[in-house]
């Protein structure tokens, strides 16, 4: 057995969980209170009025009212045109427009921007990020992710995975091993960061992280945020800083292949930038930022162009307003 294979096997046996390992929420709350840590739940949104209400209701009922595990539930929005913020606020979530947080830093549209600004806006020692488009929402989406951080001080970053695909119809499906993961990210990790292939679902939008880790890593604002996080945390803290939890199935809207192409384009940009900054490749040419797809009508082929620039926010602990708000400025 190669050393990488052994490292991954050992890590899988010690740092991979199933959410049912943490079924006892009362015990989890006790351990959290004993540890003195606080937990913020962040839900980044853009036009999610159809699913946000249910998420807030479930999390507030099960993780604040019944069991005081989470100290704040915040929705950070990129500028929804629908009633996302109104619905979220009506069920007791704290709601913020991303553009209103750290206004001196400006606003960039993208999920990663919301995640980054959450570090400044939210108070928790642990921040748990959960996407807003989950239709089978359940408290396990939070308990399964924060529990390893509460019980194991050496773990810094816990990622969700969904390992039990079921049959679904009507345009929804569990994400399982996603297409972009299997045909892009996993091959890239296998080539350059083989230990990171241990993450079953590196692109999942649900993860919980300690503040001291979040504030030290840069944030791509677009599709590359999850991949970059994994590389950056791995470089600084190693594989042992990670854990992952099986949350069973996650049901959400299926994405068109053309949308996945855009995602892959953004991830690849971030990935290559990381390789270059780490000195793992040199002399990369200037990369194009236009992603080209095609559509056909009759016998006419038409180019569909989309500019995708993976901008990046610097580590939050380099932002003066943040340091000041934490008493370090």
């Amino acid at each position: 057995m190669s050393s990488t294979t052994k490292i991954i096997s050992d890590w899988l046996s010690t740092n991979t969980y199933h959410h049912s390992d943490f079924w006892d929420v009362e015990k989890l709350v006790e351990a959290k209170e004993k540890s003195g840590q606080s937990i913020s739940l962040c839900i980044p949104t853009l036009n999610e009025e159809k699913t946000i209400g249910k998420e807030i209701i479930i999390f507030k009922s099960e993780l604040m009212d019944r069991y005081p595990l989470v100290d704040e539930i915040a929705v950070i929005d990129s500028g929804s045109k629908d009633k996302t913020l109104e619905v979220a606020a009506s069920y007791g979530a704290d709601t913020y427009l991303s553009a209103d947080i750290l206004p001196e830093e400006g606003f960039k549209p993208g999920k990663g921007e919301n995640l980054w600004k959450a570090i400044h806006q939210l108070k928790g020692d642990i921040i748990c990020y959960v996407d807003a488009d989950i239709t089978n929402i359940h408290a396990r989406f939070v308990t399964g992710l924060v529990a390893p951080l509460i019980y194991r001080p050496e773990v810094h970053y816990v990622k969700a995975f969904y390992d039990r695909p079921l049959a679904f119809s009507e345009g929804v499906r569990p994400s399982g091993g996603g297409r972009v993961t299997e045909i892009l990210v996993r091959p890239l990790f296998s080539l350059f960061f083989p230990e990171l292939t241990a993450m079953v679902q590196p692109l999942s939008g649900e993860y919980a992280v300690r503040r001291e880790v979040l504030e030290e890593i840069p944030f791509p604002i677009g599709y590359g945020v999850e991949t970059s996080h994994l590389i950056d945390v791995y470089q600084k803290w190693g594989l042992s800083a990670f854990a992952q939890t099986d949350l069973d199935s996650r049901v959400h809207r299926n994405q068109a292949t053309t949308d996945l192409g855009k995602m892959a384009f953004g991830i690849l940009q971030s990935f290559l930038n990381r390789l270059e900054s780490l000195g793992m490749v040199t002399d990369l040419p200037q990369m194009e930022t236009i992603f080209r797809q095609f559509q056909v009508e009759g016998k006419t082929y038409e180019q569909v162009l989309k500019e995708i620039v993976e901008e990046e926010r610097p580590p939050m602990n380099t932002i003066p307003a943040y340091l000041k708000s934490r008493g370090r400025g």
């Binding site: 249910k54 807030i56 209701i57 479930i58 507030k60 009922s61 099960e62 009212d65 019944r66 069920y91 007791g92 089978n136």
Partner: peptide, 14 residues
Amino acid sequence: LREILLANVVMAAE
């Protein structure tokens, strides 16, 4: 008790 009740509705319904 709204969120507690409505969470129970969601869970019972799903």
